[in-house]
Nucleic acid binder design. Structure first.
Length: 884
DNA sequence: ACTCTCACG
DNA sequence: ACGTACGTGAGAGTG
């Protein structure tokens, strides 16, 4: 017999919170509601033995009830922060119990439960609804029992229709009438003034329903009759409001709600985090702890070292490989050393040093590695991909990368090593790389048996970590983001990096020579004005010259002394002739050292190309980053620097560089997620967004927008994307804070949807503890509840910015995966080479220029359709500079 | 290893 | 009263 338990999460959390003293654990986290919730769940599981289980939560502050009655729940006190901070913990707890949970924007838990009970009733399931809210009694039926908490949560009172009749003399349906007459102060439902429970019951026993009471109001004597007549509409509306909506648009698959007991290990770790000591003792997690500390990885792992002789036989074991690890030594995978690969199977792990992997006898192993239909679980696919490619060993078919999964589960996690991961998941036995290899100058590869042991353990850990993370990703709703975006993208990035971009060495050297001459002249002038030689590159020495010797005013200080950054020097420009020379020197010295010398060092003599490394697991927002060298910050804003781009050329004669960039992608994303009317209109009509903003904020016509107004509007738009603050805007526009605040106020008065988004996202971050992008990428913001103003403000701006920047990142990543597919499908020779956050750079043969100029924008603009159009500008030329 | 500065989106 | 715009990487100087 199936038995479904449905819990009204918000109601039970509230009851628990007010019933128990305000407990907190050693890190100051309040835990009383979580504790109450836990005891409730344990009791239900033990006593009711449910086969199906679901906890429903309210979601979104506006429900359809507000559309009808905007004072709905108006009288309710705000949820205290001590309670709201516990909701994410409760959700974690439920996850550890492996109980399903559900919420839907715009609906309350009642409605979800009402919908579920109806479906369960039709299925012939027995249902127990657990809540503190008597409204829910209206759901009682032969199969549906309602459990109402009493005295907080320690006791429950069960109601089926018979008990309801016995205690109140009402049918379930009449509960709505009861509320209609007496109202409900906690939901701000008015009812009829002066009618309480007693009177309402008396009236219903006599007349049966609100409608009948109202129809007979004339025959009700005295003041009561008058009141009923005067508030007939209130009564009708109140009944309406008290009616639980039972048609929530949700698909119900009973499999999801099936309950097969809790995950003892996960529950134990949640209890430990919350410091529920009494429960830990009572429930005896020692068994679980033991498996925590003594995992399969440590239990004698059989390891074998493969040789040229034995690797042939190992080929038979390939179908049993559960996971593998490719060890790559060195930061930059393009000139790293592949040490070898470890293969983990159910009964043993095998290590193949690189030379064995490359031996003739290992041909079947290499075929397996290259086979997209042989699934592989790994750690840091991208690194292995690039390093193996240089060894001439293709790798395909990776279905799980624990490093990538760790990043998605928490993109701010900075220690992405298997050693750290293993201990995070309580798997001991994976040593730290530094322990095996040493670090820095002392780095040394030890004997092969030690290497084998270490790498085999890594491989074994990967399998176990992956099986936990698969579930975590699923729970976070990240399956598609992971399998259809990030994992395929790893392969695309690997291809781009291996391909590399051709750089004209001559061109860089020519620019470099010119720079050297000008720098030498500037140095001469600077020494002259300073009255002696010093190291201009040293902020300390420069400060001494400027502020001590030349007595210029100090406008800004750093931790260590007066600041000499460009902003300060700009303000000092008119005060002394030396300053503008220093500014010029800085600009040119930067170009020389970072871009001329820096890039020249990265050109590989073997192919004349630069191969950058895209990092997929660094940026907290979901963006990529680029290293060795960074090709995402090649100069463009100033003409002098922009010329560097002339050195980036196609790798084949007659080909062109084609660059396509999204126009205003972040503001378009903001328009989509905020649904702000004016912002959407601006993009639908393809207007210049900064001019349009100026028109709306200053209330002028297009012709009246002058340069300064547009500049201010542009700064406000940037501010909006970054998470606006009056201080930040005042700095940027060099105006007072009060003026900046006025600008922002004017902006929000017009772009009200944007204001609503900013308020809502901060609130959501506080409730959930994280924010998400359109594709469910997540970023946790624990500091959003900090009492320290700075920390909290920073978290709030991040909450505003991350969904915008992150969604833009989602979109271009999607476009890259789709673009790679299209290039392959349509057998184009063109190659994708670079990504610069909102721009993709290709090299294209002459005959494909027309096709690509059409295809690239088409794919980019439609990668993820939004409620506003995306716009892409595309250009091409003989080098990157000319593709503008 | 850390700080300052500056290049990009 | 507080004190910052969001996200990165690299080079040079200093400790």
């Amino acid at each position: 017999m199936s038995k479904l338990i449905l819990i009204d999460g918000n109601s039970i959390a509230n009851r628990a919170f007010y019933a128990l003293p305000l407990l907190s654990n050693s890190s100051g986290l309040h835990t009383n509601a979580v504790f109450g919730f836990t005891t409730m769940l344990l009791k239900l599981i033990e006593e009711q033995k449910p086969t199906h289980f679901l906890v429903a939560f309210d979601a979104g502050k506006i429900t359809f009830r507000h559309t009808d009655y905007k004072e709905y729940k108006g009288g309710r006190a705000k949820t205290p922060p001590e309670l709201s901070e516990q909701f994410p913990l409760i959700k974690d707890l439920i996850r550890a119990f492996t109980i399903s949970q559900f919420e839907l924007e715009g609906y309350e838990a009642d409605d979800i439960i009402g919908t579920m009970t109806r479906a369960a009733d039709e299925q012939g399931m027995d249902v127990l609804v657990v809540t503190g809210d008597k409204d829910m009694l209206q759901l009682a039926s032969d199969r549906v029992t309602i459990a109402i908490t009493r005295k907080g949560i320690s006791e429950i009172e069960l109601y089926d229709p018979a008990q309801l009749k016995e205690r109140y003399g009402l049918t379930p349906d009449q509960i709505r009438d009861l509320k209609g007459l007496m109202g409900d102060s906690s939901d701000n439902i008015p009812g009829i003034p002066g009618v309480g429970e007693k009177t309402a019951l008396k009236l219903l026993h006599e007349y049966g329903s609100v409608e009948e009471v109202l129809a007979n109001a004339g025959s009700i004597k005295g003041k009561m009759g008058e009141k009923i007549q005067a508030h007939a509409d209130d009564a009708r509306m109140s009944k309406e409001l008290a009616t639980i909506f039972r048609d929530v648009p949700m698909s119900i698959s009973w499999e999801e709600q099936a309950y097969n007991g809790y995950d003892k290990q996960a529950l134990g770790s949640v209890f430990r985090k919350l410091e529920f000591k009494s429960l830990l003792e009572k429930m005896d997690f020692s068994g679980a702890e033991e498996t925590d500390e003594e995992p399969a990885v440590l239990e004698e792992l059989n390891t074998r070292i493969l040789t040229e002789e034995s690797v042939g036989d190992f080929a038979e074991k390939l179908p049993q490989v559960l996971s593998l690890h490719v060890e790559v030594i060195g930061d930059n995978p393009h000139n790293a050393v592949v040490l070898g690969a470890a293969f983990n199977t159910e009964d043993a792990a095998y290590y193949a040093p690189l030379d064995v992997l490359k031996a003739e006898a290992a041909e079947p192993v290499r075929r397996w590695l290259a086979d997209p239909d042989k699934p592989k679980k790994m750690c840091d696919l991208h690194r292995a991909l690039v390093a193996l490619a240089w060894e001439g060993i293709p790798l395909e078919g990776c279905v799980f990368d624990v490093m990538l999964a760790t990043y998605l589960l928490d993109p701010t996690e900075s220690t992405l090593t298997l050693n750290a991961l293993a201990s995070k998941y309580k798997l001991s036995g994976v040593k730290d790389d530094a322990e095996v290899f040493g670090k820095g100058a002392k780095f040394k590869v030890p004997e092969v048996d030690q290497v084998s042991e270490h790498l085999c353990r890594k491989a074994a850990a990967i399998y176990q970590i992956a099986s936990i993370q698969e579930k975590e990703l699923e729970d976070n709703g990240m399956n598609r983001l992971y399998h259809e975006l990030e994992l395929p993208l790893s392969n695309v990035l690997g291809d781009m990096e291996k391909q590399g971009i051709k750089v004209n060495k001559q061109e860089l050297e020519d620019i470099g020579r010119e720079l050297s001459e000008r720098i030498a002249q500037l140095i001469g002038h600077i020494y002259e004005h300073a009255g002696g030689e010093f190291n201009i590159n040293s902020p300390k020495q420069l400060g001494e010259i400027l502020f001590d010797r030349l007595n210029l005013p100090v406008y800004k200080k750093t931790k260590t002394g007066p600041s000499t950054d460009a902003e300060v020097l700009e303000r000092l420009r008119t005060k002394h002739e030396i300053v503008s020379h220093i500014l010029d020197y800085r600009t040119l010295a930067k170009l020389q050292s970072t871009y001329i010398e820096g890039l020249l060092k990265e050109i590989r003599p073997s192919d004349g190309k630069i191969h950058t490394v895209y990092k997929q697991t660094i940026a907290a927002t979901g963006r990529l980053s680029s290293q060795y060298p960074n090709l995402q910050n090649i100069p463009i804003r100033l003409e002098e620097g922009r010329k560097i781009r002339k050195a980036f050329v196609p790798s084949e004669p007659g080909w062109r560089i084609l660059a396509a960039d999204y126009s205003q992608i972040e503001l378009r994303v903001l328009a989509h997620i905020s649904h702000d009317e004016r912002l959407m209109e601006a993009f639908h009509e393809n207007m210049d967004i900064h001019t349009k903003t100026a028109m709306d904020v200053f209330g002028v016509s297009e012709a009246e927008v002058d340069k300064n107004m547009r500049r201010s509007a542009k700064a406000v738009n940037f501010g909006i994307v970054y998470g606006i603050s009056d201080y930040g805007l005042s700095q940027n526009l060099d105006i007072t804070r009060a003026e900046a605040a006025k600008f922002i106020e004017q902006y929000f008065a017009v772009f009200q949807g944007v204001r609503r988004y900013m308020d809502d996202i901060i609130k959501k971050a506080r409730e959930d503890g994280y924010v998400t992008t359109l594709l469910q990428r997540r970023r946790y913001l624990p500091e959003i509840k900090a009492s320290n103003y700075n920390l909290r403000s920073f978290a709030e701006r991040t909450a505003m910015n991350t969904p915008i920047q992150g969604t833009a990142a989602d979109i271009i990543k999607l476009a890259m995966v789709q673009m790679a597919e299209r290039l392959q499908e349509e057998k184009l020779k063109s190659r994708m080479l670079l990504q610069v956050h909102d721009e993709l750079v290709f090299e294209v043969p002459e005959e494909e220029l027309e096709t690509m100029s059409r295809l690239v924008p088409e794919v980019m603009e439609n990668a993820l359709p939004l409620d506003v159009p995306l716009k892409v500008d595309v250009e091409h030329g003989i080098n990157w500079y000319e593709a503008k």
